[in-house]
């Protein structure tokens, strides 16, 4: 049994290739999640703001991203951009772009919800103590908004990580795609290859997402809102 498992990973550069695939998955995930958080904060603040036209445009953007399957967005940017505008982006660039477009929209909505859910009285209460508007934001509003935001952000990050395998439809060899290629070759001689390879992939995704999920539960317990 163990021999059968080890033989799959020892064959050729299989283990190294899986690690490269993991690298692709992590690169897309980390960059897209980080960019989404950075871009989502101003988007969310604008969504919670006073300008109706800006709000409507951002709402449209969010709804557009939500109704579009990620796969369609990937195809759209990878195959259609080059046809229409002659823009040739690498599969990696398209992946990061699409995942960021999605993440920033969702992050924006989370920020909007966190900011608008804070009672107006918290502002009054801070002002009544003599705090300036900036001080109220800094010491009263932002700390509370961040606490309300965290569970949602962590949920979004795990969703984004779990969705990255879609990139193999635009020929980017992520962890799952590499695994599939290995199983196709090794499966001829080793009928259990798919069990070992996909089992390995399962463990890796679990190892990435479960700690994030634990962190979220820990924070929710420490900071009930």
């Amino acid at each position: 049994m163990l021999d059968s498992a080890l033989s799959v990973f020892k064959m050729g550069r299989n283990l190294a290739r899986l690690m490269e695939g993991l690298g692709v998955t992590l690169e897309i995930s980390c960059l897209a999640v980080a960019l989404s958080i950075v871009l989502g904060i101003p988007i969310g603040l604008l969504m919670a703001g006073q300008r109706p036209i800006v709000k409507r445009i951002l709402r449209l953007y969010l709804e557009f991203i939500r109704v579009m399957p990620i796969l369609v967005l990937l195809f759209l940017f990878y195959y259609s951009l080059s046809k229409i505008w002659n823009i040739n982006l690498s599969a990696m660039a398209v992946s990061i772009l699409v995942f960021t477009l999605w993440g920033a929209a969702e992050m924006g909505d989370l920020v909007r919800a966190a900011v608008t859910s804070l009672p107006r009285h918290q502002w009054d209460s801070g002002r009544a103590l003599g705090l300036t508007e900036t001080q109220v934001s800094f010491y009263v509003i932002i700390p509370q908004a961040v606490r309300r935001l965290l569970p949602g952000v962590i949920n979004l990050a795990t969703r984004m990580i779990k969705t990255t395998p879609f990139v193999f439809f635009i020929n980017l060899p992520d962890l799952v795609k590499v695994g599939q290629q290995i199983v196709e070759v090794a499966g001829f001689r080793n009928p259990l290859a798919s069990v070992w390879v996909y089992g390995f992939i399962f463990i890796i995704y679990f190892a990435i997402c479960y700690p994030i999920s634990l962190l979220s539960r820990y924070l929710e317990r420490r900071w009930p809102s």
């Binding site: 009285h121 209460s125 002002r127 009544a128 003599g130 010491y139 809102s225």
Partner: peptide, 21 residues
Amino acid sequence: NWSRIRQRVGMVFQNYELFPH
């Protein structure tokens, strides 16, 4: 300058409005 005035005028609200964090 309301920040200065409010330091000298204390206010307590119906719903406490403590900072929950």
